[in-house]
Amino acid sequence: MEVVDPQQLGMFTEGELMSVGMDTFIHRIDSTEVIYQPRRKRAKLIGKYLMGDLLGEGSYGKVKEVLDSETLCRRAVKILKKKKLRRIPNGEANVKKEIQLLRRLRHKNVIQLVDVLYNEEKQKMYMVMEYCVCGMQEMLDSVPEKRFPVCQAHGYFCQLIDGLEYLHSQGIVHKDIKPGNLLLTTGGTLKISDLGVAEALHPFAADDTCRTSQGSPAFQPPEIANGLDTFSGFKVDIWSAGVTLYNITTGLYPFEGDNIYKLFENIGKGSYAIPGDCGPPLSDLLKGMLEYEPAKRFSIRQIRQHSWFRKKHPPAEAPVPIPPSPDTKDRWRSMTVVPYLEDLHGADEDEDLFDIEDDIIYTQDFTVPGQVPEEEASHNGQRRGLPKAVCMNGTEAAQLSTKSRAEGRAPNPARKACSASSKIRRLSACKQQ
């Protein structure tokens, strides 16, 4: 084909351009004929944790799935940006308080904090938690009735009371019990989460009196709706648990309003109706937990002794299953770290194939690490110290990083047969305790 000078094309009309061969290198194709290559998922490591896909996002930050490269346990990490926390009232204080509380709590029905990582340079905090497959609110939203069968609701409620009793025994008032803060594992274990607005009572406090509340409006008791200066913290949790039980068994809320002012007005009056299909035992329990006067409201001991709580409820309806993943529609909620794991395991070791967030990740503290002497050669063979940054567990980050890069360049065919977990650990520049 004859090559045409581009400067001469402006002298031709459209018809003349076609005659000189423009149609031979300008093609129009339908979008259905285009085959897009999927974007390669680059592996990203935060300390010893391999990052997966997004699980959810809230006002405080994002939650992603991660894999512990040492234990191969599935975890969830809450990623918090200090810049964003400053824009939220009491944001930083709530996060630090939640970390302090979770560090000393150990119960099967309370979410466990596994690790805390802090990135000084990017001003990011990573709260590594045990993995929960789904939230209770997500399960309720997945069915038209917006409720659980009585047998399933009873099982979840009993676990909620177990976890709540443990928190109260530790002198902690949750203040925000609701389905949105109750998570579930694949085995059906309920976990109380989000202790950001919780309050730890003084060890020598005479009672459970509280003065502040930041919980969700629909789950607040009349004493808070009416603006009382002080109130019983434990009875606030009992009320919120009662509203939660009402919601998961009926699909409704005892109090509603077009806006928060109308909602608080209705809560302050204390008038509500219980659907007739709840039955006398459940209705009596709800009335005891939603008692207007805090002094007359049920205690956890009274809830445990109630006939509806103690009764064994046979399954009359099919239980609400864990819904498919909202993004991938995966009904099994498979591990989202698998594509990243395959990338590390299947590809040659190259620095361009993975990302390490930083050479140094500070753990379990908000301060910069200490310094240790770096050896410097002298005339008599002895070495003197220069400062060298280290990880919180004493690992020399720069030395590990250099060693990792040197190993990656060394030709050794046997290394390709290593397991995925050992490869992740070798790529991680800074081991965590």
Rank of each mutant, 00 (worst) to 15 (best):
G408F: 09
A295V: 08
T185C: 07
L140Q: 13
Q170F: 04
Y156W: 01
A397F: 10
P373G: 13
E396H: 13
R384D: 08
T249N: 03
L190V: 06
E70S: 05
P323K: 14
E33C: 07
Q37F: 01
T336H: 14
T363Q: 13
I111W: 00
P323R: 06
R103L: 05
L427H: 11
T367R: 10
F354H: 10
G227V: 03
R104D: 03
Y362T: 14
A273V: 03
T185S: 05
D355R: 11
Q214I: 06
E376A: 11
Q364A: 13
G227C: 05
E376K: 11
G288V: 02
L182N: 06
P339V: 03
D68Y: 00
F204I: 09
L160W: 01
D68W: 05
I248W: 04
V110A: 01
R383I: 14
S299I: 09
R211H: 10
Q37V: 11
H313I: 12
D162M: 15
E65G: 01
E33A: 10
L105P: 03
N412Y: 13
A406V: 13
W308A: 01
S404D: 08
A398D: 08
K108D: 01
L201C: 07
L164R: 00
I248P: 00
K78W: 00
G276F: 05
V390E: 12
A225L: 13
S19P: 10
S142K: 13
R405Y: 02
R383L: 11
P38F: 10
M335R: 12
K416G: 13
A414K: 13
E376L: 11
Q37N: 05
S216E: 00
V320M: 12
K178T: 05
I274N: 09
K146L: 07
Q302S: 12
R147I: 09
Q7D: 10
P294G: 04
D277A: 04
R405N: 10
P38K: 14
I29S: 10
V372Q: 12
T250E: 05
T185P: 01
V63W: 01
D358N: 04
Y131I: 08
Y118Q: 13
T336V: 12
L9R: 07
Y166M: 03
V3I: 06
R405C: 10
I46L: 09
Y156C: 01
A398Q: 14
E291F: 04
S334L: 09
R425C: 09
T186A: 08
K287V: 08
V128G: 01
P280S: 08
C418Y: 14
C132K: 09
K329G: 10
D350I: 09
E256W: 15
K403I: 06
L344H: 07
P179H: 00
A153F: 01
E98I: 02
A429D: 13
S240L: 03
T13F: 09
I29F: 01
N380W: 06
G394A: 10
M139S: 04
A273G: 03
R297A: 01
G10D: 11
A410H: 09
T402V: 03
I224S: 10
N259L: 09
S283M: 09
E374L: 08
E342W: 08
I267D: 03
C210T: 10
P89T: 04
E375C: 10
L45I: 05
D277G: 08
R86L: 04
R297D: 01
N412G: 15
G288Y: 03
G215A: 07
K62N: 14
M18V: 02
D141L: 15
I361K: 03
D30A: 15
D229W: 02
R425P: 13
G385Q: 14
P275N: 11
C418E: 14
